Amino acid sequence: MNIRQIIRQKRRQLSPNERDTAQQTIYQKIARHQAINTAKNIAIFLSFDGEVDTKPIIEYLWQQNKSVYLPIIHPFVSTHLLFLKYTSQTRLIKNKFGILEPELNVLNVLPNNQLDVIFTPLVAFDQRGYRIGMGGGFYDRLLANYQSKKILPIGLAFACQKVQHIDNKPWDVRLPEIIYA
Rank of each mutant, 00 (worst) to 15 (best):
E103I: 08
Y27Q: 02
A43P: 01
L100N: 14
Q28R: 06
L70E: 03
V52R: 00
P71D: 15
F97R: 01
I73A: 04
I93D: 04
E51N: 07
L70T: 05
L84W: 08
A43D: 04
I36Q: 10
P56M: 12
K66A: 00
R12D: 07
V52F: 02
G50S: 05
T90C: 07
F45N: 10
I57F: 02
S67V: 02
L81F: 05
Y27L: 10
R8Q: 14
I93C: 09
I57G: 02
L81G: 11
K96G: 00
S15F: 11
A31R: 05
L70G: 06
G98S: 02
L104C: 01
S67K: 11
A31L: 09
S78T: 14
N37L: 14
E101N: 06
L70D: 05
L14H: 14
K94W: 05
A35D: 09
L100M: 14
I99K: 10
Q34T: 10
I73C: 06
R11D: 01
S78I: 08
A39G: 14
L61Q: 09
S78N: 14
A39M: 07
Y86S: 01
F45I: 06
R91W: 05
E51L: 04
I36N: 06
H74S: 07
L46Y: 11
V68H: 13
I7H: 00
T21P: 03
N41P: 02
P75D: 04
L81K: 10
Q9D: 15
E18L: 15
E59T: 15
Q9T: 11
F45E: 09
Q34P: 00
T21M: 03
V68K: 01
Q24M: 03
Q63I: 03
I57P: 04
S47V: 11
Q23I: 02
E59A: 10
